[in-house]
Design a protein around this nucleic acid. Structure first.
Lengths: 200, 200
DNA sequence: GTCTATATGTTGATAGAC
DNA sequence: GTCTATCAACATATAGAC
């Protein structure tokens, strides 16, 4: 089976395919793309491509997972324990700005989010884990910032993290219809609302 | 053509179909439902149902539009000019709570939002108009509230309205994966963050 | 590991009878 | 206005050759 491909060659090839597929969706967009289309652009036949994945649905979920990994890797510098709230926020806004330039992936994200409504669909697990991880990390960051007086202490950190996730995902929905939308400014506004107002 | 059906009978039947279809999607959910499935549950053949719509895509967009109309009608009492911010917020939260109980429609909403990435798709116009209307109304409400000192005056009303829309749509995405999520509490938190803190 | 070929299923749309 | 019947198009998944 593809996922259990323990030989380095198979895993490496799978990675290679996913990177290429990611680039294709980013460039060409995603309007109900078929495996065949994607396969040809990646340089394989449809059956050849599917050899590495359990199904079409799993393939597309893995493309999204690869994007996250690429995004994370690109900003690993800011994710150490000494990072301040502002640094973490700016790192996050960088990712937001980057994603806003790739509407094809935003569309894929949104479509798979809809698929996740079905508990049997591979994207369900992906979104559940992704959301939980994102919120856990931000809830911790926010709690720390509250201890330092940088964030209002009258909101629950987990609820604030949830709100950040919701605003991010919802902003992407708006982006699909208004490609010129400044998503980062929107998220920045939310951070501003959460900041302690210790002015008179 | 279906949309130009100027005879009362045709329009009425179309309405009737949409109400029935809305109820079906709400009850049964929506996992890539086909026109045929929906037609049978509505009591028509596939061709008979499609007689009233230009295409499958238009049909599903109209179902979503119908939901909005039903939601609006159910809360028209609070939408007069004398309504306070709190009343408008509570009316909105009522709709949010109501929608949270109908995951099938949330899924349809999310799927069509993804389709809206394609400018040719009928859902594009729907989401563009819906978003603009929602934001215009809330931006006005928020500006009024700022004038009265109820909302922080350091945020742009339109940006705040956008944030409210984003949080609402994004919360729905989380709901798809966590059906037990308290969406209203999430949105309420955002309102709380926007409220003026004129305490010491 | 990758291909060709195909099995098998579905879908949305249309033509035409009633 | 609604149905039956039919269509072409296309999908994914698999079998088997190389």
């Amino acid at each position: 089976m593809a996922r259990r491909g323990s030989y380095a060659k198979g895993v490496a090839k799978r990675e290679e395919i996913l990177r290429a597929a990611l680039a294709v969706v980013a460039r060409e967009g995603y309007h109900g793309a078929s495996v065949k289309e994607l396969a040809e652009e990646v340089g394989l036949s449809q059956a050849g491509l599917l050899h590495y994945f359990d199904s079409k649905d799993e393939l597309f979920v893995e493309i999204l997972r690869t994007r996250d990994e690429v995004d994370m890797a690109g900003h690993s510098g800011t994710v150490d324990d000494t990072a301040t709230l502002d640094e973490l926020r700016d790192g996050y806004l960088d990712i937001v700005r980057h994603n806003a330039r790739v509407p094809g992936l935003v569309e894929l994200f949104t479509r798979l989010a809809a698929d996740a409504a079905n508990p049997e669909h591979p994207s369900r697990a992906f979104f559940a884990e992704r959301g939980a991880g994102l919120r856990e990390r931000w809830a911790g960051t926010i709690a720390d910032a509250q201890a330092k007086g940088a964030i209002r202490d009258d909101i629950d950190p987990m609820l604030a993290a949830r709100l950040l996730q919701a605003a991010s995902d919802g902003a992407q929905m708006q982006l699909l219809v208004e490609p010129e939308l400044d998503m980062a400014a929107l998220i920045e506004t939310l951070f501003a609302l959460m900041r302690s107002s210790d002015r008179p």
